[in-house]
Amino acid sequence: MRQQIILSGLGGQGVLFATRIIAATALDMNLHVLSSETHGMAQRGGNVVCHLKVFGGNGEGVFTSPMIRPGMADVLLAFHPEGAKLHGHFLKKGGVLICNDTKMIDATGIALKLGNGLLTNIVLLGYAAARKCLFCEADSLRKALQNASGPRAEENLRAFEAGFMEVTS
């Protein structure tokens, strides 16, 4: 198992939280995780990008670098349409782009319908899970989300399902 995922969005969109959920899922599955995140000044409304590498399980090589090179990512989760343009070059040929825009999935619209625009990140995560582009099953993500959400668990899971349903419906 080896997967390289780029998560891109704006400061305040919960990109870091989404990254942590996927990383926790990998840990639950006994895989190794190496990731790199944006902190500091850029978190104030700037473009935020996380690199996440998951590996292990079988004999394939380990990752040692916390960063993904352009043209190497298997998946790009763009929490804002800008992310798809700005970080699109990280995707490898045949890589999967999941983008929050009105054409693919209007995660922001769905989150607002649920009453909280800050749920956009979780809606998109649910959608990505349903598209089966990540290394893990949707149920493993649900479990990690539940564990990491504290008092917000119910609201977050509802957002996850709302995104998930966009594919099945």
């Binding site: 704006l10 400061g11 305040g12 000044m41 850029a42 978190q43 104030r44 409304g45 700037g46 473009n47 090179r69 352009p70 043209g71 800008e82 343009k85 700005l86 970080h87 699109g88 070059h89 990280f90 995707l91």
Partner: peptide, 16 residues
């Protein structure tokens, strides 16, 4: 040979 990033302006950070 690897894809080159589009030359896009990035968002400047702002006060919340």
């Amino acid at each position: 040979k690897r894809p080159v990033p589009e030359d896009l302006p990035t968002r400047r950070p702002t006060l919340c």
